[in-house]
Amino acid sequence: MTILEIIALCFIAMGLIFFLGGTVGILRLPDFYSRLHAAGKLDTLGSLNVLLGLALYSLAPISLLSVLTALKILLCMFFVFMASPSATHAIVDAGMDAGMPHWRKR
């Protein structure tokens, strides 16, 4: 196992931990907005970490092809980074428009 692979696996494992946190958040948090908060933030960070890990992993025998693959994965990261938080924003916006009540501590 090379150093690069170990770093890649660390990133993937970290991403999976974020995904776990996001899942627990979606299941456990009390209302619409806080659940979306967990989903939007942690899923984005988790997928960014996993994709970065995969990009590093695909670099292993370095060649033109593997660099191109890594660049494509980086492009995916960019689009996930743009799309996921703004989708969450749009859903929260729609919730506010529809008059969804937010959670209060009793």
């Binding site: 689009f79 799309a83 924003h89 749009a90």
Partner: peptide, 17 residues
Amino acid sequence: LRYDLVTSTVCRLMIPF
């Protein structure tokens, strides 16, 4: 209808790709 700056800007960026 609301004009949402964040959504429309991001979509404007993403749609060509």
